[in-house]
Design a protein around this nucleic acid. Structure first.
Lengths: 216, 216
DNA sequence: AATGTAGGAAACATTTTTAGTTTCGGAAAC
DNA sequence: GTTTCCGAAACTAAAAATGTTTCCTACATT
């Protein structure tokens, strides 16, 4: 492997690990000294990979979002039908939300607006498009109600997604993002699927890998 | 009500609300300007109640811990037996953990050592004593195994409590404090209760107010 | 109607913290 | 033996937040 590729691989490793730390501990509370220490390198070495803290957060988030696009693309490719695809999306996104607290979202919104913009763009483009295509696919496969308007349904879905990240309504009520997410998906799939789709859903939820999703 | 009492009531209201905000958003990310804004008062007014940010955090925590002692004292007074008391403790503490993320604990440990010391003292004194007395009570009531050593059992419990707040082991695994807490209590009660105690536990868990605790 | 009081908004000064950079020493590679 | 590179620690600079002060407005009191 060429030296340039080694450097890039190391960069990816550093920024990916750093973002995970930020997601766990919060961006504001975690200094660059903390990050370097937990990654087992010096600050000097860390600054060989990134220009500044903002750069680190942004690069980490970029990697994270690209990974999500890659993984969800694979879910789509592997899925047998629209319901299967939706459950696959849910499994991945929910596992990510398990480790995310609303305070970290607040942190990013407040101190890292550029990073937040990346998340917003990801939602507006990739997520929206995925749901739109999934809705159309479900209608074509006879699993979703035929009288759905995919554009409108997708907009309703995005409204709920935006609401999930509105921290002020999520605090102080013991509501966890992962549970909120599952509640929304249950609401969504019940709102779009027909009887055949619901049956398909139940079949999929019986699989071990989906048991914990509690979408029934 | 005398003016002095009004001031004190207002102080309590301010510091209690402020601590709740800190627990939700994280102490580091929430500036004094943020706190004042969310409390609907000015920074100038806020500084009439507290000397500085450290003072606000400490006073808020003090109030929180005193409230816990008062509530748990009432649980003890109202409880019919040791199992009833333990479940009552669990219900209250768990509801508090629902809104607490490990990143906030990390925040306090790192930037507010004095506040953290208060929590540590609370655990070392009040919590330890409560569990010690509960253990003795259970033995006396014939619900716990007679061959328990209350001092040792209490120390084992405190070890688990300390482990729960060790953020490094809790991150990145999708483990929530409230679930970890319930798992620990289940482990604890199974470790100390005899058959009669377990039966008592099952009876109590059938009550609506305890259904969600998932200790069976 | 005039005066006093109190709080909010905003500006200001200071301090602290963190970011980001540089230096020195040691270990490893050549 | 020399060179390179990284870690640890020290250093510098900048930014952010804390904490204080000023001015204005609204309300209460006389």
């Amino acid at each position: 492997m060429k030296e340039k590729e080694v450097d890039n691989e190391k960069l990816v490793q550093v920024v990916a690990s750093a973002l995970e730390l930020f997601m766990n501990y919060g961006v504001k509370s975690l200094t660059m000294a903390d990050v370097a220490s937990k990654l087992g390198i010096s600050k000097k070495t860390l600054y060989q990979f990134v220009k500044d803290k903002k750069d680190l957060v942004n690069k980490g988030m970029l990697f994270c979002l690209e990974e999500e696009q890659q993984v969800l693309g694979q879910v789509t490719a592997d899925s047998e039908n629209a319901i299967d695809e939706l459950i696959g999306f849910t499994r991945f996104v929910n596992s990510r939300l398990k480790d995310l607290h609303a305070s970290v979202i607040f942190d990013i919104q407040k101190y890292h607006p550029e990073c937040w913009s990346m998340i917003e763009s990801h939602k507006k483009d990739f997520v929206r498009n995925s749901i739109l295509l999934n809705t159309k696919r479900g209608i074509e496969e006879g699993l979703y109600r035929k009288n759905l308007n995919p554009e409108i349904v997708t907009s309703l879905y995005m409204l709920m997604m935006d609401g999930m990240f509105n921290s002020d309504q999520n605090f102080g009520k013991g509501i966890r993002l992962e549970d909120l997410h599952l509640e929304m998906i249950r609401y969504h799939v019940r709102g779009i699927a027909n009887d055949k789709g619901i049956l398909q859903l139940k079949n999929l939820l019986n699989k071990d890998e989906n048991n914990h999703l509690k979408l029934d």
